[in-house]
């Protein structure tokens, strides 16, 4: 499944990083603790979180995740969108909470 497929099927909003929406999703990781993500997320996974500040892009780009999904209608700060565009790592938004959206993505990847 590509990032754009997940986006369409779950009716997600694209905040930034449009150049990366063709990337393949290999799995997912849900956490709001940055060093947990640093230690345990894997390349190509979507990262589900409620953190919206700039450091999420450092983590996402160093770990090479396929996309970031912000839950509960949270929005990325402006400087975060800028880096997401530069890096081509999409930041997506959903109204769902982490539990719900993780369950849906999990089911779609099975």
């Amino acid at each position: 499944m590509k990032v754009c497929d997940m986006m369409q099927q779950l009716d997600m909003k694209l905040f930034s990083g449009a150049s990366g929406i063709e990337k393949e999703i290999t799995g997912g990781y849900s956490s709001d603790l940055l060093s947990d993500v640093m230690g345990n997320a894997e390349e190509g996974q979507v990262w589900i979180t409620l953190q919206t500040h700039k450091n999420i892009m450092a983590v996402a780009s160093l770990k090479e995740v396929s996309a970031i999904v912000l839950v509960k209608n949270l929005q990325p700060e402006d400087d975060v969108r800028e880096i997401s565009n530069e890096e081509g790592i999409p930041i997506l938004g959903t109204a769902m909470d982490a539990f719900t959206v993780a369950g849906k993505i999990y089911a779609m990847l099975k």
């Binding site: 709001d32 603790l33 940055l34 060093s35 947990d36 640093m38 230690g39 979180t49 953190q51 500040h53 450091n55």
Partner: peptide, 14 residues
């Protein structure tokens, strides 16, 4: 901000 899990040094070691 999501830091302070106490996992950083463990990550470095790994």
């Amino acid at each position: 901000m999501g830091f302070g899990a106490g996992m950083g040094l463990a990550n470095i070691k790994k």
